[in-house]
Design a protein around this nucleic acid. Structure first.
Length: 648
DNA sequence: ATAGGGTTAG
C-alpha cells in the first residue's frame, strides 16, 4: 500500500490519521513567497482547502494576489463549504483596504455565490447591497445574486433583483435575460416574461442561444404555442435543448403526432438526442401504446455508449407497462442500479393498471423493506388498483394504514379511490357515508364514480339523484349523460333513455366518438366507431368477419344491443354495435399481424359490455392474446377470459 | 458555476 504523503512535509504520515495537516507551530518548509504561492495553488486545485487556508492564515501578508482568493472561493463554492468560505472571507476582509481588493467585483460576485450555494442568503444579500452602492458594478454581481435566489427557490426575489437592476439604470445583458426568463418560466409569469422579451429585442447585444432557449421555455411553460414556433423559427442556431422545448410545446398542445415528427426531423437533421429528448418522447409512446416505437427508442438507448439516467429508465419502464408488457417493465426495473421513488411508483402503477394487484402488494412490501418511503402517488396507484381488482378489504386497510403507518394524509384523489372501491363492491351506502364525512369538497369525479357504481348494481333511483347533482357540477360532460342512459337502458326504461337523449340535444352535448387505435409496423391506425366503411367493404374484412360470426354463433353469442341508445330497430342496433371501434381494430389486427402475435388496442372510452364479451370469444377462437387498454385500465383477453374478471 | 430541456397520478 502506498502511504499517504503530506504535501507540506513531504514525509509519509500514518494512514489512520484522517486529517492531513501541518500543525500550526510547525512552519511551512519554504519562506520563499514564489514557492508558497505555488504550494497554495496546488493545495487549492487538489481540493485540500483546509490546508490551503491554514497556509494563508499563518502568513496573511504573503498573499496579496486577488486571483489567489478567487481560486480559493471557487473551490469553496464547488465543495459548498461554508466553513472554509467564511475563513477565506475573513482573510479577505484583512485585505479590504488594499486598492486591489477594494473594487474587485469579481471577488464580490464569488462571495455572493458562495453564501448563496451554502444557503446563507442574508449574508449574500449584505455583500450584494454593499457592492451595488458603488458605481460601475458589472452585471455579473446582480446575476450572481439573482441566481442565488433562484437556486434556493426564491424565484420572485430573483426577479426583483432583475428589476432592481433596471432601477439602477443598468442595461441588462444576455446573462441577466436568461436568469430572468428562467424565473418567469418557472413562475409561469407570462406577462413579466413578455416584458423581458421586449427588452431582449431592444437590447443592443442581440440574444444568444441561451436567451433564445429561455424564451422557448418561457412560452412552452406558459402554453403560448404560437410564440414557441415563432421563436424557434427565428433562432439563428438551435441546439438539442431548443428542439426539446419545441417537442414539449407540441406535447402540451396535445399534438402528439407532430411531437413525434419533430423528433424524427431532429434525427434527420443530425441533431441527435439527449436523455431529456427521450424522456419527452417515451411518454408519448406510452400514451398512444406505440410499443414498436418505444422499443426502437429502447434500442437507441442500448446502442448509445452512455448510461441512461433514472428519468429515462423510469419513462422506459412506464412505456412498457402502459403497453401492457408488464413483465418486461419489471425486468428493466430490477436491472436499475439506482431507483428513485418515481421508479417504484411507476412499477406499482404498472401492476395496478394491468390488474396484477397481488404482485403490486408484494412489491410495495419490498419497497418498505428497502427503506423507501411511499408518497401520495404510491397510494393512488395501490388504492385504485385494489378498487379495480375488487380487493375491497385490502384497499380499506391500506387507506387507514396510509396515514397511520406512513404519514401520508389522504387527498381528494385517495378518497375518490375509496368511494369507488366501496361503490363497486355494491356498498354504495358506505361510499356515501365516506363522501359525507370527507374533510374536503367533493368533486365531479367522485360523483361520477358513484354513478358508475349505480350502473353496476342497477340502482336506478339513487342514480337519478346522483346524476342530477352531476349535471349541476359538470353540465357539459357527455360521459355522465351516457352513463345515466345506460342505467335506464339496462332497466328497460326506454322513455327515460329518450328523455336523457333529448336533454343532451337541447343542451347541445354530443357523445364523444369512440376511437380505437393500434400500431402496426411504423404506423398508428385509428378507427372511429361507425366509420371505416372502405375497410368494412373489403374482401379481407368480410372473410374474417364471416368466419368470426360463425364461431360466435357456435359459442352462443347474442349481441347485447342495450348499449345502443338510439331508437332504431334491432338489426340497425346490431350493426352499430358491430361497428364499434375496438372491433374494427381487432379485425384489422387479425388481418395485418402474424398468427399468434398478441394484439394491442387502445381506446378513448370505456369498452362496452358487448364488445367485451365479443373480444373474449375472439381470443378463444383465434388463440390470440388481445390486450385492450381502456380509459382507466387494461383488459388482457386470453383463451376466452379477461383479466378483469368481467369487473370494471 | 454567468444557463439551457425531462419521468410517476381517478
Amino acid at each position: 500500500m502506498i502511504p499517504a504523503i503530506s504535501v507540506l512535509t513531504n514525509t509519509p504520515i500514518p494512514t489512520n490519521l484522517t486529517v492531513i495537516s501541518c500543525p500550526k507551530s510547525q512552519k511551512p518548509p519554504s519562506k520563499n513567497p514564489q514557492n508558497l504561492n505555488q504550494t497554495l495553488k496546488y493545495l487549492t486545485k487538489s481540493g485540500n482547502l483546509d490546508e490551503a487556508i491554514r497556509l494563508i492564515e499563518s502568513s496573511p501578508s504573503k498573499f496579496t494576489d486577488p486571483e489567489t482568493y478567487s481560486q480559493l472561493l471557487h473551490s469553496c463554492i464547488s465543495q459548498k463549504s461554508l466553513h472554509h468560505g467564511q475563513r477565506v472571507y475573513k482573510q479577505l476582509l484583512k485585505q479590504e483596504y488594499s486598492e486591489k481588493f477594494l473594487e474587485n467585483h469579481n471577488l464580490k460576485g464569488k462571495l455572493i455565490t458562495l453564501f448563496s450555494v451554502c444557503g446563507e442568503l442574508d449574508e449574500a444579500r449584505i455583500i450584494f447591497e454593499n457592492a451595488v452602492e458603488n458605481e460601475g458594478v458589472p452585471e455579473s454581481v446582480w446575476v450572481a445574486m439573482a441566481i442565488g435566489y433562484s437556486k434556493n427557490g426564491f424565484l420572485r426575489e430573483a426577479l426583483l433583483v432583475y428589476v432592481e437592476m433596471l432601477w439602477n439604470c443598468m442595461e441588462p445583458g444576455n446573462f441577466a435575460f436568461s436568469t430572468a426568463l428562467k424565473a418567469c418560466a418557472d413562475l409561469r409569469e407570462l406577462w413579466v416574461g413578455r416584458g423581458v422579451h421586449a427588452q431582449v429585442v431592444k437590447s443592443s447585444e442581440g440574444p444568444d442561444q441561451v436567451v433564445n432557449n429561455g424564451l422557448l421555455r418561457l412560452y412552452t411553460q406558459c402554453e403560448c404555442f404560437n410564440e414557441v414556433l415563432k421563436v424557434f423559427d427565428q433562432m439563428p442556431e438551435r441546439n438539442v435543448a431548443s428542439w426539446n422545448s419545441l417537442i414539449s410545446g407540441f406535447v402540451k398542445e396535445d399534438k402528439l403526432g407532430e411531437a413525434l415528427d419533430v423528433f424524427r426531423r431532429m434525427q434527420r437533421e443530425g441533431m441527435g438526442f439527449s436523455w431529456v429528448t427521450l424522456t419527452t418522447i417515451l411518454p408519448i409512446c406510452a400514451r398512444v401504446t406505440a410499443l414498436l416505437s418505444g422499443k426502437e427508442i429502447h434500442a437507441q438507448i442500448v446502442k448509445s455508449a452512455r448510461r441512461p439516467d433514472v428519468l429515462v429508465l423510469n419513462s422506459l419502464v412506464d412505456m412498457y407497462v402502459k403497453c401492457g408488457v408488464v413483465d418486461y417493465g419489471r425486468r428493466l426495473f430490477d436491472g436499475m442500479r439506482s431507483k428513485d421513488l418515481t421508479s417504484w411508483n411507476t412499477m406499482l402503477t404498472g401492476y395496478a393498471i394491468n390488474g396484477y394487484m397481488r404482485v403490486a402488494m408484494d412489491l410495495f412490501n419490498e419497497m418498505a423493506s428497502c427503506g423507501i418511503r411511499p408518497d401520495d402517488v404510491t397510494f393512488i396507484a395501490l388504492l385504485s388498483g385494489c378498487s379495480h381488482a375488487g380487493l375491497t378489504e385490502d384497499g380499506q386497510k391500506l387507506f387507514h394504514r396510509m396515514e397511520m403507518d406512513f404519514g401520508v394524509s389522504p387527498s381528494l384523489e385517495h378518497y375518490a379511490c375509496l368511494v369507488d372501491m366501496l361503490g363497486r363492491a355494491g356498498r354504495i351506502d358506505a361510499a356515501l357515508v365516506v363522501v359525507k364525512n370527507m374533510p374536503m369538497k367533493t368533486s365531479g369525479s367522485i360523483w361520477g364514480s358513484l354513478l358508475n357504481s349505480c350502473r353496476l348494481h342497477n340502482e336506478v333511483p339513487l342514480a337519478e339523484a346522483i346524476a342530477n347533482r352531476l349535471f349541476e357540477l359538470e353540465p357539459y360532460n357527455p360521459g355522465n349523460y351516457v352513463m345515466l342512459s345506460n342505467i335506464y337502458a339496462n332497466a328497460g326504461m326506454w322513455d327515460s333513455v329518450n328523455m336523457v337523449r333529448e336533454m343532451m340535444q337541447t343542451r347541445r352535448i354530443r357523445k364523444e366518438a369512440g376511437c380505437s387505435w393500434i400500431q402496426v409496423k411504423n404506423k398508428i391506425h385509428s378507427f372511429v366507431a361507425g366509420g371505416g366503411f372502405e375497410f368494412r367493404n373489403s374482401d379481407e374484412y368480410k372473410k374474417i368477419w364471416n368466419k368470426l360470426r360463425e364461431a360466435m354463433e357456435e359459442f352462443g353469442y347474442i349481441p347485447n344491443t342495450d348499449v345502443v341508445l338510439h331508437d332504431v330497430n334491432e338489426e340497425t342496433k346490431a350493426m352499430w354495435v358491430c361497428g364499434h371501434s375496438e372491433r374494427l381494430a381487432t379485425v384489422f389486427s387479425l388481418i395485418h399481424t402474424a398468427a399468434g402475435m398478441p394484439i394491442r388496442i387502445t381506446k378513448n372510452l370505456r369498452v362496452c359490455v358487448d364488445c367485451h364479451s365479443w373480444i373474449k370469444i375472439v381470443s378463444r377462437v383465434t388463440g390470440r392474446v388481445i390486450v385492450l387498454r381502456d380509459t382507466n385500465r387494461f383488459h388482457h383477453f386470453k383463451e376466452g377470459a379477461c383479466s378483469c374478471n368481467d369487473y370494471w
